[in-house]
Structures are given as C-alpha cells and as structure tokens.
C-alpha cells in the first residue's frame, strides 16, 4: 500500500512538471488563433451573384486579355503560354479551378494583393506583378467586371482536372516559392521553381524549405497558417493562397509523406512493441512475487 502511495506522489509531481513545461507553456508561447475559415466568409464575393459563362470566360482569358502571355495553362488538351519570372514564377492556371476556393479565386483576380492579404508589401508605389482586374480601365470595379470575373472563374473550373495527387497540389500551390529538398533528396527536382535571387528580391527573404515542417510545426498550426499566414506571422510576405479545405489537406499530407515518411511504420510497430513489453512486465512482476515470497 505504501508503495502505491509513493507512486501516486511521484506520478502527481511528474504530471505537474509535464503539464507545466508542455501544454501550459505552449498556450503561453503560441497564442491561440481562430480556426481556419475555408469559406473565406470575410472576403467579399466580387462576382456579386452573377452566373459565370464558360465560353465567355474562355474568350476573355485566351483572346481578350491573353493571360497566356504571363501564365501557362492547358486548354482543350493543348498547353498555351509559359511560366515566367516576375519576381516569382507565374503559376500554371490549369488546376486553379480545382485547388483554389472559387470565391477566393474571384477576389484574387479582382485584386491580388488584397485577396492574398499582402497589401502591406505593395505600398509606396510598388504594385503586385498581376494588375487588378478592370474591364474598361475606368478604375472602378463595376458590374461588367463582376460578370467577367464570374465568367473567368467558370472557365477555370471547367478546364481543371477532377483530382490531383498530393504532390501535384503541392507543386501547383507551393513549389514556386518553397523548396522541399527531402521530396527528391538526390535528384533535386523539388527545389523551388523561382530562382533564389528573384524570390529574395521579391519577398525580402528566401522562403524556408518545407522538408521538416510537419515535425517543426503541428498539423493544426500548418492548417491555420496556410489558410491565413497573417494570423501566426503578422506582416509576413507570404500571401494567403486560398486553397480549398481538400487541397490544403493534400498539401499537409504531402508534407507528412516527405517529412515524416516513417509515420505508418512507427504506428504499426507501436502495438507489437508495447505488447511485448506488457508481457515482459507481467512475467517480471510474477517472478518478483515468487522470489519475495521466500523472504517475507
């Protein structure tokens, strides 16, 4: 009985110690932020209720604005345009309609810096490399603009593939700025596509390699951060990219596949390992009782 009392004291103080240096300390070191919002509800839907028309969207993108002069995309099975270095490599638009939330996508086309929450990066005359959307250059986002943006979003959704692998989502959403060295350690194919010098002058810093993010940040932190980087890192140059919940899960899954590649093995091994130890402990306790019966 006395042994159990002593054990209770040891367990109690160890528990207080653990609570103090882990859960308690973390609430103080990492302030709580609101949960991710995948509906982008505080972002205005610039389409203002207009229904998009795919054919009109196609003619706006390919013919009128010729987005392929800066972007690549695959239309009707043919790749048009190519990615170019405008401080950061411009994204391929083929998958945009799948991986980005449509409300966000519309807001981004209308005003990229505002939707990305990086307006603080473009003060004192600097402008986002992609200009704000303005059909007739009147400086006002009017009804015609709302209809055009709705059409473009409808078109982008129509050309997007139905699904992508985790890695493909990562490549389209993250790799233009971020390297993930462990994704291809010996081949080097997972380096950021934007050259270091360009990204450094554009962002002010080379964005971190993401190889070990799944270990250095918690999964919940990653979701909160990707959904809105300003929440955890106020003033960061990283834009909010507007991934849908499904795409963001795929990105985090890719970070896990790369950065914690033995997770499944670890989880599978735990059961047998601990099971063996439980059996060992049972036999050890029984043997102890047998031996001590002779001396008590």
């Amino acid at each position: 009985m006395r042994e159990f009392k002593i054990l209770a004291v040891v367990v109690f103080f160890t528990g207080v110690l653990y609570w103090g240096v882990e859960p308690f300390a973390h609430t103080k070191l990492h302030p709580h932020v609101p949960a991710p919002d995948y509906t982008f509800s505080e972002t205005e839907d610039v389409r203002a209720g207009k229904t998009g028309d795919v054919a009109s969207g196609k003619s706006l993108i390919v013919d009128q604005f010729q987005c392929q002069s800066c972007h690549s995309m695959t239309v009707d099975g043919t790749k048009i345009g190519s990615s170019m270095d405008l401080g950061v490599m411009t994204p391929d638009l083929t998958s945009a309609g799948l991986i980005y939330d449509e409300r966000y996508l519309a807001a981004f086309i209308a005003n990229p810096a505002k939707a990305g929450k990086v307006e603080h990066k473009f003060e004192e005359g600097a402008t986002h490399p992609m200009t704000n959307f303005d059909m007739n250059y009147d400086g006002i986002f009017g009804d015609d603009d709302a209809q055009a943006v709705a059409d473009i979003v409808a078109f982008l959704k129509s050309i997007a593939p139905k699904e992508l692998t985790n890695k493909e989502v990562y490549v389209d959403a993250c790799q233009r700025c971020h390297s993930i060295k462990y994704g291809d350690f010996y081949g080097g194919s997972m380096a950021a596509t934007t050259p270091d010098a360009s990204i450094k002058s554009y962002m002010g810093v080379i964005p971190p390699d993401l190889s070990q993010m799944i270990r250095s940040r918690s999964e919940s932190f990653l979701h909160e951060f990707i959904n809105d980087p300003q929440k955890h890192l106020h003033g960061t140059a990283m834009p909010r990219v507007g991934l849908t919940e499904e795409s963001e899960d795929q990105v985090v899954n890719y970070l896990t596949e790369v950065g914690d590649s033995k997770k499944a093995e670890r989880e599978a091994l735990a059961g047998p390992f601990l099971g063996y130890l439980v059996i060992f402990a049972i036999f050890a306790v029984l043997w102890k009782m047998k031996i001590w019966r002779q001396v008590h």
Binding site: L277, A284, V285, W287, W292
Partner: peptide, 22 residues
C-alpha cells in the same frame, strides 16, 4: 532478490518509456 524487484519496476518503466518513444 533485489534484482527481481528491479526487473519488475523496469518492466513497468519500459512500457512508459516506449509509449513516449512511439
């Protein structure tokens, strides 16, 4: 005698330790 008690304690400790490891 002494070590038999140690092994019993050790057995329980190792469960705790490997729980943390995994």
């Amino acid at each position: 005698v002494f070590l038999s008690k140690d092994f019993a304690v050790l057995g329980i400790f190792l469960i705790f330790y490997f729980y943390l490891v995994f």
